[in-house]
Amino acid sequence: MAHGGGAGRLVLAPMEGLADALLRDILSAVGGIDLCVTEFVRITDQLLPPAAWLRRVPELTQGGCTAAGVPVKVQLLGADPACLADNAARAAELGAPAIDLNFGCPAPTVNRHRGGAVLLAEPELLGRIAAAVRAAVPAAVPVSAKMRLGISDTAPALACAQALAGGGIDELTVHARTKADGYRPPAYWEWIARIREAVAVNVVANGEIWSAADALRCRAETGCADLMLGRGLVTRPGLALAIRAAGAGRPAVTLPWPALRPRVAAYFAGVCQRLAPRHAPGRLKLWLSYLRAGYPEAAELFARLRTETDCARLAAALAPAPQPCAA
């Protein structure tokens, strides 16, 4: 059994269509995060050229880290051991500080093409993928995997975890729901504890961590020091700082809206530089839709901007209010 020590690491989860490089930069700059994981890079039957990697993972041009210096693990999704191995080696050559394998995505379009959580029906294949990637990547580059508890039930959970560990991965993140569960609460943290007892690699707990209290309870129930934060961190960008404070017995930490609003504006400015004008507003509204649960001000802003499609007017709405002149 592997047991994490100390306060434990906090990891930003890979969230397809949401936690892109821009949002990784913003959230890691807030503080408290030790590691980010990219949105999955889909691997089919080709070795992706360097330009494709740099487009998907721009952090590779800056030492494999966000602007705040947080390392970014590159996640791969696919079902072909040899092709995944070749592409993992390419990513490592380009500077990826670590490689992750996706066996957790529940999206039907992904699963129909034998990617993500659907592969949990094939523990032997998971082991072969892990072994091929581990053999292809330099020993100094960690290889990890992320999995759910199963497809429609938890029957394959232990076999899948053991197959991945047996294939040579260094670490396993467990999203404590099945594919059929989607993102509906609860997360079955007791299964993470069972998996942790069954494998000889470090286990990272993931699922339904929305507050510092959730994080402390998850650590207690799973025995995992390391936690992966997804929608909870997107909703409350100060969550990692709050967890660190709670874990150290310090007073509660909050990130007030006046401190967050400029970061939202900076995010949207970056989105406007990278995306076509017809797509940029949607990315802003997606993040605001999450922030509504943590900030009444974001809820008001989302309601006011919901139908706005002009980037300039959206940027103006995010700008700080003018301060009155001193007498």
Rank of each mutant, 00 (worst) to 15 (best):
G127M: 09
R114V: 03
L94E: 11
A252P: 03
A215Q: 06
L76F: 00
N206P: 04
S211C: 10
R184K: 13
T38Q: 06
C36E: 03
Q162T: 00
E221P: 07
I243A: 13
S211I: 03
A200F: 01
R306N: 10
Q162P: 01
H175Q: 08
M15K: 09
T66K: 04
P186W: 02
D214S: 05
W191G: 04
T178F: 09
I26Q: 06
Q273Y: 02
I26K: 03
D214E: 02
L286H: 13
A140S: 15
G8D: 07
C272Q: 08
G207Y: 06
A265Q: 13
P97Y: 10
G167W: 12
G249I: 06
P71G: 03
A89M: 05
R55N: 15
V253I: 07
A107E: 05
A91P: 03
I43P: 02
E59T: 06
A316E: 14
L27T: 05
G150F: 06
V137Q: 12
L241N: 01
E16P: 04
A259Q: 10
G32L: 11
V204G: 03
E171K: 03
A327F: 05
L23A: 03
L284F: 12
L216F: 05
A200G: 13
A21N: 09
D310Q: 13
T38P: 09
A159H: 02
R9K: 15
G166P: 15
G116R: 05
G116M: 09
V271K: 02
D45K: 12
G247C: 14
T309H: 02
F268Q: 08
M15R: 06
L288K: 14
V70K: 09
L47G: 08
R231G: 02
N206C: 12
D310V: 02
L76D: 09
L233Y: 07
P71M: 03
F302Y: 12
A159K: 11
A326R: 15
L23E: 01
V74R: 08
P58W: 10
I129A: 05
